[in-house]
């Protein structure tokens, strides 16, 4: 089965929550230097709730679609819930398994999101 199912392609072509937040309270950048994937997560946290989240950067379809899906999933959710997410939760969002070589593409978004939540501006 192709990795590039409609869900992934849809989020790659029309990313949700793409952009930056001027008033972000939390922000972090992540990258996979070997792939050339880069990602920045901007988050506005209020009362321990993720009020808004946006991502920017560039990379392969898997890394970008995963960021789009993840931001959708954590928006309006408590920080705690986002911080407790695990790699398998991201794979569930992507609705597929990833080969070891592509795993880091798929998980860059979660890594960067968690890093941002720990970095208050």
């Amino acid at each position: 089965m192709s990795l590039y199912q409609d869900l992934i392609l849809d989020h790659y072509r029309n990313p949700r929550n793409h952009g930056t937040l001027k008033k972000a309270t939390h922000r972090a950048a992540g990258s996979n230097p070997l792939c050339g994937d880069t990602l920045q997560m901007d988050i506005i946290v209020k009362n321990d709730i993720i009020k808004d989240v946006k991502f920017s950067g560039s990379g392969c379809a898997i890394s970008q679609a995963s960021a789009s899906l993840l931001t959708e999933a954590v928006k309006k959710k408590p920080i705690k819930e986002a911080l407790s997410m695990e790699p398998k939760d991201v794979l569930e969002l992507l609705n597929m398994g990833l080969s070891p070589n592509r795993l880091k593409c798929g998980l860059l978004s979660l890594e960067t999101l968690k890093s941002a939540l720990r970095h208050k501006r």
Binding site: L3, Y4, C35, G36, S58, C60, A61, I62
Partner: peptide, 12 residues
């Protein structure tokens, strides 16, 4: 198009 996407889709 990211080369990883190209290589993966060729690989398929």
């Amino acid at each position: 198009i990211h080369p990883h996407d190209i290589a993966q889709l060729l690989g398929e």
